[in-house]
C-alpha cells in the first residue's frame, strides 16, 4: 500500500523531468492531466484518512477539475492561437533537465532528512512536493510564453496540493484551502484572461509585454 503511494508520488515528481525536457506545449498539458489523474489515485488510496464529504470534493477536484477541465481548456487556447512549441527558452532544455533532476534529487534528500526530524509529515509527499514547487518555478522563470507561465503556475499549484496532503494530522481546512486555490486559478484562467491577452497581443510571448517599464 505504502509502496503504491510512493510509486505514484515518484511518478508525479518525475513527470516534471519530462516537462523540462520537452518543447511541445501539448505534452505539458498532457503531463498536467496525468498528474491530476495520479492525484486522483492518491486520494482514492487515502480513503480511510479523509472524511466522506471532503473525500467527494477531492475526487471531483482531482478527477474533473485537474484531470479534465483545465487541460481541455488550456489545449483549446493552444489550438485557438496556433501555438505548439516553446521556442527559445532562456536556457536550453537539456540544461533544464539536469537542473530539474538535481532539484528532484534535492526533494528526495529533503524527504530523507524530514523522515528523521519530524513525525508529523509524510516524508516522501513533503520532499517531492517541494521539488515540484521549485521545478515549476524554474519552468516559469526560464520560459517565455505567457501560456507556458500559466501552465507552470498550474504545476506550482499541483506541488502545493501535494504539500497540503503531506500533513499527516487531520487538517481538512488546509486541503480545502488548497482546493480553493485551484478554483481561484480556474477562474483566473476561465476568466478569459489568456484569450483577451492573445487577442490584444499578437504573440503570447512575454517579450511583447514591454509597453510598461521604467
Amino acid at each position: 500500500m505504502i509502496d503504491l503511494f510512493n510509486l505514484l508520488i515518484i511518478l508525479i515528481g518525475s513527470s516534471m523531468l519530462y516537462v523540462s525536457f520537452t518543447y511541445r506545449l501539448e505534452e505539458y498539458i498532457k503531463t498536467l492531466s496525468i498528474q491530476g489523474f495520479l492525484f486522483f489515485l492518491i486520494i482514492l488510496l487515502d480513503f480511510d484518512k479523509i472524511e466522506i464529504l471532503n473525500f467527494i470534493f477531492l475526487i471531483i477536484e482531482t478527477l474533473i477539475f485537474k484531470t479534465i477541465i483545465i487541460p481541455v481548456f488550456l489545449s483549446k487556447i493552444l489550438r485557438k492561437n496556433h501555438i505548439n512549441r516553446e521556442i527559445e527558452p532562456y536556457i536550453p532544455n537539456y540544461y533544464s533537465v539536469i537542473i530539474a533532476t538535481l532539484v528532484l534529487a534535492f526533494g528526495f534528500f529533503i524527504s530523507y532528512w524530514s523522515n528523521d526530524e519530524f513525525q508529523n509529515i509524510r516524508p516522501l509527499f513533503f520532499g517531492i512536493s517541494i521539488s515540484i514547487i521549485i521545478n515549476s518555478f524554474i519552468i516559469i522563470i526560464t520560459r517565455k510564453k505567457i501560456i507556458t507561465h500559466v501552465i507552470g503556475y498550474m504545476f506550482l499549484e499541483n506541488g502545493i496540493f501535494l504539500l497540503s496532503l503531506s500533513i499527516a494530522a487531520e487538517m481538512p481546512i488546509i486541503v480545502n484551502l488548497g482546493m480553493l486555490l485551484d478554483i481561484f486559478v480556474g477562474i483566473f484562467l476561465l476568466g478569459i484572461f489568456v484569450n483577451k491577452i492573445s487577442s490584444t497581443f499578437e504573440e503570447l510571448n512575454i517579450d511583447k509585454l514591454t509597453t510598461l517599464k521604467d
Binding site: L156, I160, S164, I174, F188, F193, I197
Partner: peptide, 25 residues
C-alpha cells in the same frame, strides 16, 4: 497597457498568494 498591467498583477500576485499558502501549510 491596462491589460498588460493586469496580467502582471494577477500573475505575480497569484504566485505570491501561493507562496503565502505554502507558508500557512
Amino acid at each position: 497597457e491596462s491589460l498588460e498591467a493586469s496580467w502582471k498583477y494577477i500573475f505575480i500576485c497569484s504566485i505570491g498568494i501561493s507562496l503565502a499558502f505554502v507558508g500557512i501549510i
